[in-house]
Computed example of a mutant assay.
Amino acid sequence: MSAPLPSALRARFQRYIEEGLSGRAAAARLKLSPATGARWRHQIQTTGRADPAVQGRPKGSGKLAPHVGFFEELIAQDPDI
């Protein structure tokens, strides 16, 4: 997965929206896709900001999550493992 676009770009986009441009027009000025412009505009209208979404898998949902207690106990017995 690629990194989110910089927050400076998002701030410029938000200024264009506040100046009255549509999401598509602001995206065209910044050379973004129209879909990104529409998505960011919607996010600005609902939350007031265009922050990047959280990326990655949620913590504690991996294959070893059911065995965390066992590993903690094992490490507590011998911390030099």
Score class of each variant (00 low, 15 high):
residue 4 P to I: 04
residue 30 L to N: 09
residue 54 V to I: 04
residue 25 A to Y: 00
residue 1 M to Q: 14
residue 63 K to I: 12
residue 27 A to D: 01
residue 77 Q to A: 15
residue 55 Q to W: 05
residue 39 R to K: 14
residue 75 I to T: 10
residue 9 L to N: 03
residue 39 R to F: 05
residue 74 L to E: 09
residue 34 P to G: 04
residue 33 S to V: 05
residue 44 I to A: 12
residue 21 L to G: 00
residue 68 V to W: 11
residue 37 G to N: 04
residue 49 R to L: 05
residue 78 D to N: 15
residue 3 A to H: 11
residue 3 A to L: 10
residue 30 L to P: 12
residue 52 P to M: 02
residue 41 R to Q: 15
residue 13 F to W: 04
residue 45 Q to W: 02
residue 39 R to Q: 11
residue 76 A to F: 01
residue 73 E to C: 00
residue 27 A to G: 09
residue 35 A to C: 07
residue 23 G to E: 02
residue 12 R to L: 08
residue 22 S to I: 00
residue 9 L to M: 06
residue 80 D to W: 05
residue 48 G to C: 02
residue 66 P to K: 10
residue 35 A to T: 13
residue 33 S to A: 13
residue 34 P to N: 05
residue 58 P to Y: 07
residue 74 L to K: 13
residue 46 T to S: 14
residue 51 D to C: 07
residue 40 W to C: 00
residue 2 S to W: 04
residue 64 L to G: 12
residue 34 P to H: 10
residue 21 L to P: 00
residue 17 I to S: 03
residue 4 P to N: 07
residue 66 P to C: 08
residue 81 I to G: 05
residue 77 Q to R: 15
residue 22 S to G: 08
residue 17 I to H: 03
residue 49 R to E: 07
residue 3 A to Q: 12
residue 18 E to Q: 12
residue 48 G to I: 03
residue 65 A to P: 06
residue 30 L to T: 08
residue 16 Y to K: 09
residue 7 S to G: 01
residue 58 P to S: 11
residue 70 F to S: 08
residue 41 R to I: 00
residue 28 A to K: 10
residue 24 R to E: 15
residue 79 P to Q: 01
residue 57 R to Q: 11
residue 64 L to C: 15
residue 46 T to W: 03
residue 38 A to I: 03
residue 10 R to F: 01
residue 68 V to H: 13
residue 2 S to T: 14
residue 40 W to L: 08
residue 68 V to M: 14
residue 48 G to Y: 06
residue 39 R to E: 02
residue 30 L to Q: 05
residue 15 R to E: 08
residue 41 R to Y: 06
residue 75 I to N: 03
residue 50 A to G: 15
residue 19 E to T: 13
residue 13 F to A: 05
residue 23 G to H: 10
residue 75 I to F: 12
residue 41 R to V: 01
residue 62 G to R: 11
residue 74 L to R: 09
residue 34 P to W: 01
residue 8 A to Q: 10
residue 26 A to E: 01
residue 42 H to G: 10
residue 5 L to G: 00
residue 55 Q to I: 04
residue 35 A to G: 12
residue 29 R to K: 15
residue 52 P to K: 04
residue 34 P to E: 11
residue 32 L to Q: 13
residue 63 K to D: 05
residue 72 E to G: 04
residue 52 P to F: 00
residue 78 D to R: 14
residue 68 V to F: 13
residue 8 A to R: 11
residue 80 D to H: 13
residue 63 K to H: 13
residue 66 P to H: 04
residue 10 R to S: 06
residue 35 A to Y: 07
residue 62 G to Y: 10
residue 6 P to W: 01
